[in-house]
């Protein structure tokens, strides 16, 4: 009797374990199905329920600094997650609001002004394409920290690069150069902006400065891409110019870029800065970046081309 009961008991245990095993295995496709459904919910409305910095400051109950950290991390995720950004109808609609909340909760978070203005000012799809909002954010920072020259430097940078307002950039940098804590190169930079607005050498020195001085990986990466793009643009414009001269003299384009160039320039200018040869069509004389290139090319504004070609012709 007892043996029969034990046998029934162990059979029941086996049934239970079988149900556990089968049930667990069945949940896997079910879960995948649900996740796939959840990921396919259409465009993200990108709602920010609490968007008033003043109300959030009240609700922080004194933990303003901690809440600022949370909003700063959220801003980084909002800006950095490219997949999520693609799902939104407007990529970075709430970027300024998030930065405004972060800097209201902790006005001393200088990184939020500095990185935030680049996030805002960069053209789409890299950034939000809102240089006006970037200036607004920097002005807010300058009001709280009038002694912080780096914020004024960034303001000049936004004027110079993203708004092509060389005079305003020069004026801001000139103001920075008068401050005792500002580095010495601010004066020459202001002079260059005021006298040679749109020059490649000024653009290069600005991005070089960002690359050398930023401690943030994303900003350094962006500055590196910009520097490489400037080099590519210079190479392509030079090649276009030389090909034009060659055609005038020979009434046809050369068979290869090597035939066009001689000496050291042959080694340097036929390949992009990361070593991939440029694409050249001898029929049309068109020269462009190779699709296999490792350079993440960011378009250089055409106004720089005019300035560059004038210098080259001289």
């Amino acid at each position: 009797m007892k043996a029969a009961r034990t046998k029934t008991g162990s059979r029941q245990t086996m049934y239970c374990l079988g149900i556990v095993l089968i049930g667990t295995l069945l949940t896997i496709p079910l879960q995948n199905l649900l996740i796939a459904h959840l990921n396919d919910t259409g465009p993200d409305p990108d709602l920010l329920y609490l968007n008033s910095p003043k109300i959030l400051k009240k609700m922080a109950l004194g933990y303003d600094s901690l809440l600022a950290d949370i909003y700063w991390l959220r801003t980084i995720q909002y800006f950095g997650d490219r997949k999520e950004a693609e799902k939104r109808t407007v990529r970075f609609k709430n970027l300024y609001t998030l930065l405004d909340i972060t800097t209201t909760l902790d006005p001393d978070l200088i990184d939020a002004y500095q990185a935030g203005c680049i996030f805002l000012a960069e053209d789409e799809p890299v950034g939000a394409g809102l240089p006006g909002e970037a200036l607004k954010l920097l002005d807010k920072g300058i009001e709280v920290h009038p002694e912080e020259w780096r914020l004024r430097y960034d303001k000049g940078f936004i004027y110079y690069w993203f708004l092509s307002d060389f005079k305003s950039a020069g004026d801001v940098w000139l103001e920075v150069s008068r401050r005792p804590e500002a580095p010495e190169e601010m004066g020459p930079l202001a002079a260059m902006a005021l006298s040679q607005g749109g020059a490649m050498n000024v653009a290069r020195s600005l991005w070089k400065r960002q690359y050398d001085e930023s401690t943030r990986k994303g900003i350094r990466e962006n500055a590196r891409n910009r520097l490489l793009s400037l080099q590519v643009a210079e190479d392509l414009w030079t090649l276009e110019y030389l090909l034009g001269v060659y055609r005038l003299e020979n009434e046809k384009y050369p068979g290869s870029l090597e035939a066009l160039l001689s000496g050291e320039s042959r080694k340097v200018m036929t390949v992009d800065p990361l070593g991939t040869p440029y694409d050249y069509d001898p029929e049309t004389g068109a020269v462009k970046l190779n699709p296999q290139t490792k350079v993440h090319y960011v378009a250089v504004p055409m106004r720089y081309k005019e300035d560059f070609l004038t210098t080259l012709a001289d």
């Binding site: 901690l66 950290d69 991390l73 980084i76 978070l109 990184d111 990185a115 943030r216």
Partner: peptide, 23 residues
């Protein structure tokens, strides 16, 4: 761990979270 996500503000995050936890 959370501080690593902060683009160079690790110490600030540790301090803020630490002080808030104590409080």
């Amino acid at each position: 761990i959370i501080g690593q996500l902060s683009l160079g503000n690790e110490v600030k995050i540790i301090l803020d979270l630490g002080l808030a936890s104590i409080s």
